Simulated assay, not measured.
Amino acid sequence: MPIKIPDDLPARQTLEAEGVTVMGEADAVRQDIRPLQIGLLNLMPDKVRTETQLARLLGATPLQIELTLVRMTDHVSRNTSQDHMEAFYRPWDDVRHGRFDGFIITGAPVERLPYEDVTYWSEFVQILEWTQTNVHKTLTICWAAQAALYHFHAIQKRTLGEKAFGVIPHGTCVQGSPFLRGFADTFQVPVSRWTEICAESLAATSGLEVLAESSLTGPCLVDDPAHRALHMFNHLEYDTETLAKEYFRDGGSQLPLGYFPEDDPAKAPMNSWRAHGHLLIGNWINAIYQTTPFDIAAIGSGSALTAA
């Protein structure tokens, strides 16, 4: 099934060139099914690249997806044009009374700041609380995952002495998890962060389950069923070139582990994680589809929460 996005969103041309089926408004109306309503709160600096990466994965799932791009209400993006933001993004204040089957919150380049020093922290906390009443299932990524664990469970992050950076082998911890269907026992994951959540903190918190981890960079994927949330500390959504762009942007100061062939930045990297990115998002969408109420207005009601 296709993903429904605005006709003139820059991601559309990229996805169509890759063979992803993209649907227009008229085609969507003709299909007698309810599309899953997925919101994307995009906090990354390069909004266009991030929305393309996630739309690519959502568009490969076998269900019709209607994607709503969301931004912080008062925060002004410095790296994406205001024309793009005004044309394609809705401030959270405009969507807060709606319901979503799924809601994705990305990372943000603020991870070394104390949470309360982030300029939009107050609104971010409101959004996390809003997901508990207006969203069926939430997926948080990188900084957003750490921030959600801090808000909901008072788990502190820890600053690293050196950036965790590269394509790192991970192992699955819970073979029976529906979010890990089809995963190999070990798989590669792009990692790019200056902070971490310690395994000991997760183990000491009841109700959380570590689904995947690495001996080098620690926990990767955490299930938080009490909040109907899946927390991903790393970046299975990344493009092949994303880590290279970060490496060259930072002046080549730290070589990403396991990324460039023979550790030679002059050689083009190979994508070894693409399939697992599709698996993760496909499994998350399937979990939503299996449990979300047909009447989207029922999301947030007692019966909808029980079904989750």
Rank of each mutant, 00 (worst) to 15 (best):
A28R: 13
L36H: 02
P114N: 09
R99F: 04
D8Y: 08
I5S: 14
V29G: 12
L40H: 02
Q13N: 15
T119Q: 12
L58K: 13
A55N: 06
R112T: 13
D94V: 07
D46H: 07
Q132P: 00
D8Q: 13
A108K: 13
M72I: 07
A28D: 10
R30S: 09
G107Y: 09
M85E: 12
V76N: 06
E86C: 11
V110H: 11
E66F: 06
Q64T: 09
A17N: 14
T131V: 04
S81W: 00
F103L: 13
L43D: 00
G24V: 03
T73I: 01
F124S: 09
L63E: 11
T106H: 14
D101C: 06
R112W: 05
H136C: 07
T21C: 12
A28Q: 12
A87F: 02
G59W: 02
L36R: 00
K47S: 01
Q64G: 10
P114Q: 06
R12P: 09
D83L: 10
P91H: 01
Q132C: 01
T21S: 15
D83S: 15
I105R: 12
D74A: 08
A55P: 04
D8A: 10
W130N: 15
A55F: 03
I141A: 02
Q37R: 15
T73N: 01
Q13I: 09
V48P: 10
I141W: 02
F124E: 11
H97T: 12
L43H: 00
F100C: 08
A108P: 11
I5G: 15
P109Y: 06
W121P: 01
T21E: 14
W121Q: 02
S122P: 06
F103W: 07
V22F: 08
E111P: 09
I65V: 01
L40S: 03
L128V: 01
D8L: 08
H75V: 10
Y89A: 13
H136E: 09
Y89G: 13
A87I: 00
Q82N: 12
G59S: 04
R112H: 11
S77M: 07
L128F: 02
K137F: 05
Q13A: 15
E16V: 10
L36M: 04
F103I: 06
H84N: 11
I141P: 03
H84F: 09
E25N: 13
K47R: 05
L36F: 00
Y89F: 14
L63P: 05
Q82T: 07
T119N: 12
R34K: 14
E129R: 15
D7K: 14
E16N: 11
K4N: 11
L139T: 04
T52D: 03
V118E: 02
I38L: 00
Q31N: 07
V110S: 12
N42Y: 05
Q13R: 15
P91W: 02
T133L: 05
L15D: 08
T73P: 00
I5L: 13
